[in-house]
Design a protein around this nucleic acid. Structure first.
Lengths: 211, 211
DNA sequence: GTCTATAAGAGGATAGAC
DNA sequence: GTCTATCCTCTTATAGAC
């Protein structure tokens, strides 16, 4: 199972390496399918087919469909945390600029079909995620780091101080599943970069004209 | 089936009235369940149980789960069109004010658990909706009427003229399934009215401070 | 750990009596 | 048009050989 391998430090046997590679391939397939069709419509058969192994083999690596989704979310949040680290190191950005850059990454990733999203209503999935330590750890770390930037940007008055910080955080998180991107892309008449600029603009500057 | 009854003008027999009442009860249950759990997690058994009839009876009224969802959306869009009519008659509002009021209604309805939403990814559902005339008619009517207000508000420069009108329209539509409302409500420390105000503010004024 | 085969059950839809 | 009983497909998950 994957937890053991995740904890291993440096020296890996050949067997362990191939194991990790296989699990990475599984998680990559799950991420793609999750972004494409969502949790409910994704089937474990599809995942197995895309990886090219039998479904029973897949269940040797991950105990359930929920665990599969959780692993995909963990890897995605690790990517997000890497982006956060990069932005934190960029001294040319203020807090609001970092939040905006983070939001841009989220939009670009979703538009590229590489942002897995989970339904918040599904209760079996919800409880599995709440019990998943690796997932919860990363979610809290990410929220803490973005939360610091939000508080700072509100102190700067670059982000509206009248909004509760949680509302700002949720609004940024929600860009990961914003259907507006898909609608505009389906129209077919705009470039991805243009679409991202527009959605980023509505998110930070609003629909109303700035005077 | 429902299409016939929908077309009838005024005089209804007793049988027809009870039929309509039953179909209204069915659609009401579908709307509620659609808002609560979404299309994929809603089961036809649940709908029948909530109405208090057998599943087979339900299939005498609606031919499939997709048709059930479409009927719910038709009724919801009729509600929306009624709101639009009311706003159009209010001479104290400009175009931007009407768009804002319409968005507020959408947010309030969703927060009240009365806004059915359909997944845009589900292909069987998607094709059923595209073939559903009553649904498509209303969707186009609603889009046309909101579109007029958007064009006018951009001419006023009360809504940002740099945005394509479709981007504005989709952004307003997307408020019907904005997860931020649910997140803030789950926190438990804010009133519904306060939550709606914040989301409406981020939608029209953005996250960044207005100077 | 990988496979084939299959259990177990949910859920959409229908048959046929009344 | 309503019911009970049933069909049938899809999907999650597991058994057991290699």
């Amino acid at each position: 199972m994957n937890e053991v391998v995740d904890a291993a430090p440096a020296k890996l046997s050949f067997r362990q390496k191939t194991l990790l590679a296989r699990e990475d391939a599984i998680v990559a397939a799950v991420k793609r399918l999750l972004a494409e069709k969502g949790f409910d419509l994704m089937t474990v058969d599809e995942v197995a087919a895309e990886v090219g192994i039998a479904k029973a083999s897949l269940y040797k690596h991950f105990a359930s469909k929920e665990q599969l989704a959780a692993a995909a979310m963990v890897q995605t949040m690790d990517q997000a945390l890497t982006i956060v680290d990069g932005l934190a190191a960029d001294a040319s950005l203020d807090a609001a600029g970092r939040l905006k850059a983070m939001t841009r990454w989220t939009l670009e990733t979703q538009l590229a079909g590489a942002m897995p999203t989970l339904p918040s209503e599904n209760s079996s999935l919800r409880s599995a995620l709440l019990a998943h330590r690796d997932y919860m750890d990363r979610l809290m770390t990410l929220s803490d780091r973005l939360g610091e930037w939000i508080v700072q940007a509100q102190a700067d008055s670059t982000v509206n101080p009248a909004l509760p910080p949680e509302a700002v955080l949720y609004t940024i998180y929600a860009r990961a599943c914003d259907p507006v991107l898909g609608f505009l892309k389906a129209g077919g008449s705009h470039s991805d970069a243009q679409i991202v600029d527009w959605v980023l603009s509505t998110c930070f500057d609003g629909l109303a004209t700035r005077r």
